[in-house]
């Protein structure tokens, strides 16, 4: 997988420049799209290895509640420290859960992930005096080295963008490493990998840990953007949404997850504004169309457009 420098620079330029011309509300939605993108990247990584998780909200909620408890117990809300903390708690959680998870495939992998995330949900919901239960925890305004970092402002957006950029680079390096190639091979044929001397379990375990860390970072940013954390962060519906976005965008390219996240946030925001009781119908309808007619998601639609364009221009096919 070669980075297409032209695409990377165009996307980066868009993400850096477009918000400058946008009202604060659009900047806010774009911030949401960016942290969603980070969590979806984790889901998409696992999907590349042929593994579907229906419980990725476990790591997302680990991240949101890392911030929640930090604020509740220590009154500490500095993003500079909490973003790495979220990555760490996500990684640790994934390292623990992954010990069991790496043994499973297919529907069992999906269900076991669901079960673990629902345990966290049940605990967050029921232990009122520790977690705040349904009330959740109010996070307030984040700080960065002591300076306030308000959601919907440029400093907050660009911080999120820098983090998302760093993470994209890490994921890209991972996919370009031998491990990344093995990961994709798992989806095709596990046995062959074992023949080659690599352990399938090790590949899945390491990918799982990386995906968990991404979930944690996403959760921290989500907590600061929204300003409030709730048990539903761990609910199966949240996990379902991550999978939804991963497939909406298509998980074959990193850009797919980004397109999926941006499209999802805008569709959700505006369809729930104009059709408050039909926004799920809108999303479900779009997804149905994609699955039945364009299974590769927005990424595949984009690629087919590009290849059509470039084959016309250069007479060559796009690899």
């Amino acid at each position: 997988m070669r980075p297409n420098l032209r695409v990377v620079s165009i996307v980066s330029a868009l993400l850096i420049l477009v918000p400058l011309a946008m009202p604060s509300w659009v900047v806010f939605i774009l911030t949401k799209a960016l942290f969603t993108f980070i969590a979806v990247l984790g889901v998409a990584l696992l999907l590349r290895g042929g593994q579907l998780t229906f419980g990725h909200a476990l790591f997302f909620a680990t991240g949101t509640y890392t911030v929640g408890f930090s604020v509740k117990w220590f009154g500490f809300r500095d993003a500079l420290l909490l973003v790495p903390m979220g990555a760490l708690t996500g990684l640790i959680m994934a390292a623990l859960v992954g010990l069991i998870m790496a043994r499973y495939r297919g529907v069992f992998f999906a269900m076991l992930n669901l079960a673990f995330s629902m345990i966290l949900y049940a605990i967050l919901l029921k232990f009122y005096w520790v977690t705040g239960g349904t009330d959740g925890i109010s996070v307030g305004t984040a700080t960065f080295l002591g300076f306030p970092l308000r959601a919907g402002t440029y400093p907050f957006y660009y911080l999120t963008l820098v983090i998302a950029g760093l993470i994209t680079y890490v994921v890209y390096r991972f996919l370009a490493s031998p491990l990344g190639y093995f990961l994709r091979a798992i989806a095709d044929n596990e046995i062959r990998i074992e023949y080659s001397g690599e352990s399938v379990r090790r590949v899945i375990y390491l990918t799982y840990i990386l995906a968990g860390g991404l979930g944690g970072v996403s959760g921290v940013l989500a907590a600061f953007t929204v300003g409030h954390v709730v048990p539903e962060d761990a609910f199966w519906f949240q996990s379902g949404q991550f999978v939804f976005i991963a497939l909406l965008g298509g998980f074959e390219g990193i850009l797919g997850s980004l397109m999926g996240a941006v499209a999802f946030e805008f569709i959700q925001t505006y369809s729930s504004k104009y059709f408050p009781y039909a926004w799920q119908l809108t999303l479900g309808g779009i997804m149905l169309f994609i699955i039945l007619f364009r299974p590769g998601g927005l990424w595949a639609i984009y690629e087919s457009l590009v290849s059509r364009f470039s084959s016309k221009a250069e007479g060559s096919t796009h690899g």
Binding site: V230, E232, D233
Partner: peptide, 28 residues
């Protein structure tokens, strides 16, 4: 959820530019 309401509150203020917000039944 409270998180959803916080987001919608931001939308009311930032996008709809309402002058006053009334309501909220749930204590959470």
């Amino acid at each position: 959820t409270p998180a959803k309401n916080v987001t919608e509150f931001r939308r009311l203020v930032m996008e709809e530019k309402v002058n006053v917000v009334l309501g909220f039944t749930s204590s959470a």
